[in-house]
Design a protein around this nucleic acid. Structure first.
Lengths: 181, 181
DNA sequence: GCTTGATATGTTATACCATAACACTTATCA
DNA sequence: TGATAAGTGTTATGGTATAACATATCAAGC
């Protein structure tokens, strides 16, 4: 399971949401080859778009790279700030359009609870993401929610509702904060 | 399953979100005794608070009544408008404080996807709500998510994450809009 | 090429959602 | 009855998101 730190967005636990390093929860992505991991995800997205005749434009590509590089949940305005620094756009719609595209294509997810976006941890593969959000440090993990999705889809079908997308977001304590408590 | 209509809040489908009547999806609560249903829920909340030494103040009671009466997903500012009309408060924090209390006590739920609140359809009973949100007309239904919650809690435990609260929100087509499509 | 329609971007303005902070009041209980 | 906690009133501001319209770019058929 991949863990993300939260960035400076507006959240219930914003004040304590400074990036944490060295802990067990994050050991996994401290050791991996982050550069290669980003490149692979971008390449996969590129191929996906090519295959479908979609435009993987510089803006969209860059926003995905920023999300992958940050390796954390980022607010749209965090993204926008990066884009602005790089001369790739300066107004909110620029960020939101790119993010909408990435989310629609499954390259990124929106975490409704905290109004933030993360690069998808399993790009390319069909999957049902669930997010675990620590209420103390706001770290976020993407977990697999296949069985849960199956359950809710079945319940919905019984009511005549046709499910297209499911957002599952669990709030609680991450391993580190649970131990501290 | 209980269906709610969406109110005038800011949503992807706000323009088509006028209350709908007469359809099969809503037949269930058109026939029930709404007055009695509201009274029962308020009485239950009152008893719950009394038992725990919590203050079920006039403001909190009134906000719950408004949610129950509206029988739909309402934005905090919709609530505030009602309170203002009744002289019970005029500034946003008034509405948010009451809503926070009601959500914390389980008398209401927040639907993150659309930044709206609904009165709980099963007040008093322990339950795990899941929401079905129609992407066309924004009608909202509260379904039971017990099995899904069990699944996600188990997956989280495997990662050392302690789940306290789970939000499950499915987006798709309600029976009526599915039929129209 | 050139037109045409669809898609994407630039920009302004605005709407909507939510809380920090502080003063004041009311309830509870030792 | 005085101390403490909980709730309310109010101002101000911060954070999130989109409508609307102008412009530019791309892809396909003539």
């Amino acid at each position: 399971m991949l863990w993300y730190n939260i960035s400076s967005i507006h959240t219930p636990c914003r004040d304590t949401a400074t990036p944490r390093h060295g802990g067990p929860a994050h050991a996994r992505f401290q050791s991996h080859d982050h550069r290669a991991c980003i490149a692979a995800a971008v390449t996969a997205a590129d191929a996906h778009c090519r295959a479908r005749g979609l435009h993987f434009t510089p803006q969209r590509r860059r926003v995905l790279e920023i999300l992958l590089d940050g390796h954390r949940a980022m607010g749209a305005y965090d993204i926008l700030e990066r884009l602005r620094d790089e001369g790739l756009g300066s107004q909110p719609p620029v960020a939101y359009r790119a993010l909408d595209f990435l989310v629609a294509q499954g390259f990124a997810h929106k975490i409704e609870r905290i109004n933030a976006f993360v690069a998808c941890a399993h790009s390319g593969a069909e999957h049902d993401p669930a997010f675990l959000i620590c209420r103390v440090c706001c770290a976020v993990a993407e977990a697999e929610a296949g069985p849960a999705r199956t359950a809710i889809t079945a319940a919905a079908r019984g009511a005549g509702f046709r499910v297209e997308r499911v957002a599952i977001e669990a709030e609680g304590l991450c391993p580190r904060c649970a131990e501290a408590a």
